[in-house]
Nucleic acid binder design. Structure first.
Lengths: 99, 99
DNA sequence: TTTTGACTTGTCAATATCTGTCTAATGTAA
DNA sequence: TTACATTAGACAGATATTGACAAGTCAAAA
């Protein structure tokens, strides 16, 4: 499930209004609406604020948010899976080198 | 191998100079130098030009270039592998839905 | 039906980031 | 030294992102 849909679901489960959450995040309801609908990408600090406002794990939300950004980036490529595989491979190499 | 290192290797194997390749790409040598060293990210058209100038597969270079962008994005995250896994999962869902 | 409240959309100015080039510096081989 | 390849830093212009506002839709209540 895309990041936006996910946080909308969370918000609705907790029966919070856009304006309540947006206010806690110090942003306009319009902006939060767009984030939930996926027409705007949240900034990292906003994801952190969201975790706070929704009482959810910041790490987990950040993870979904980043995954979402990756998906947006490559979803229209025919070889998106290969791209991810290559990225994974590179990451593995990096972490080995780091040690 | 990171995108920049890779195209540098290709260029050196073919014994081409920065200024030769850069000229074919219609950019400054300084810019190509930075791209090869990874301090600047190439634009998509530049990758296409590179494929042409180096006589390499455009698709393959684009794939490596995108993978590189993903790596740059998440390499400092402790859970980078999880992020990739999540992205892969989402991509899978998307392609199923599309049909 | 009007009103109300939640949400959505389009637009805009301000800001931030990116882009490519220029110049000067560094490295290196003859 | 000289000549040439490459790199670093700084800059202006181009492009993208940001958040807010105002006006819109929609459904339920009055």
């Amino acid at each position: 499930m895309a990041f936006g849909n996910y946080i909308r679901k969370l918000r609705e489960e907790k029966q919070l209004l856009l304006r309540e959450v947006a206010s806690q995040m110090s942003i306009d309801t319009a902006l939060l609406s767009k984030i939930e609908r996926g027409t705007r990408i949240a900034r990292k600090e906003q994801v952190e604020d969201l975790a706070e406002a929704l009482n959810e794990s910041e790490n987990e939300l950040l993870k979904l948010w980043m995954a979402d950004k990756i998906v947006k980036m490559i979803k229209d490529e025919s070889n998106s899976t290969e791209i991810l595989k290559k990225a994974e491979e590179e990451i593995k190499n990096l972490t080995n080198k780091k040690q």
